[in-house]
Structures are given as C-alpha cells and as structure tokens.
C-alpha cells in the first residue's frame, strides 16, 4: 500500500470508523461510495465500538509472502455488536481456545512490515474480552 493511501484509510484501520447510510440507516464497514444495502449514495461517518464475537475462524499455517514470519495466525470473521461482519486477525489468544461465539474486542497491532526499509502497517486485530 502506498503511504498516501495508508494515511487516508487510517481512521478505518485504527478507529473502526465506518458509516451509517443516510437513506436506509444500515451500518456500513468499511466506508464506500454507495450503500451496499440500498444502493443509495450518502453516508455519515460512524465509529464502531470494537466489541463483538467470533463468527467463524481459520488458523493460517500457509501464509502469503509478507506474512510468513507471523504464522501461524488466526483469521476470523468478527460480528460487531452493531451488526456488520468484518475480517481480522485474532491476537493474544491460544489457537486451541478460539471458539465461534467467543466475545472479542478490538486492539491496534502491527499487521506487517513491508520489507526492511518499508512501511510498518498497523491496523485492528481482535482479542478475547479482558474484562466486562
């Protein structure tokens, strides 16, 4: 990802900033030009709370270039409390403890380094809820 685009999408990656459709009122994540639910244009920015549960998951032991040093890692679909699903890695959890329905919360972590002198990409990951 180039640096300008990296910063432009920073709020989504660091703060779970998505949108609410002004026409149908449904939540949208990540932000986009047209509402995928009603196809109308016009959204308001909205920050999602970062709480949710594991909807499904897979443990990756055959990572793509750029991610091999982090494997094994767990990719999950997270169902946010506000409704939308998103795709993220789990962190701070033993793989054998991951379950569908497990409550999780968002944290900001390093996703990868793009080569030795390249950009370090940060973004959201989810960990088991530490405290209620």
């Amino acid at each position: 990802m180039n640096v300008a685009r990296y910063w432009r999408t920073e709020k989504t990656r660091y703060g779970l900033v998505g949108e609410t459709c002004r026409v149908c009122g449904k939540p949208i994540f990540p932000p986009r030009d047209l509402c995928p639910h009603c196809t109308e244009a016009g959204q308001d920015l909205r920050t999602f709370g970062g709480r949710g549960e594991v909807y499904s998951f897979a443990h990756v032991t055959d990572a793509p270039a750029g991610y091999t040093e982090y494997q094994p890692y767990t990719v999950a679909l997270i169902k946010l409390e506000e409704g939308p699903l998103l795709t993220a890695q789990l962190t701070d959890v033993d793989q054998s403890d991951v379950r569908i329905g497990m409550p999780v919360e968002m944290v900001t972590r390093k996703l990868k380094e793009e080569g030795e002198n390249g950009m370090v990409v940060y973004g959201y990951k989810f960990r088991p809820v530490m405290h209620e």
Binding site: R13, T87, K112, V121
Partner: peptide, 9 residues
C-alpha cells in the same frame, strides 16, 4: 483494505 491486509488467504 478489508481482507488482504489482514493476511487473508
């Protein structure tokens, strides 16, 4: 930005 950068395969 919604899948690839999270190491999705």
């Amino acid at each position: 930005t919604a899948e690839y950068i999270y190491g999705v395969t």
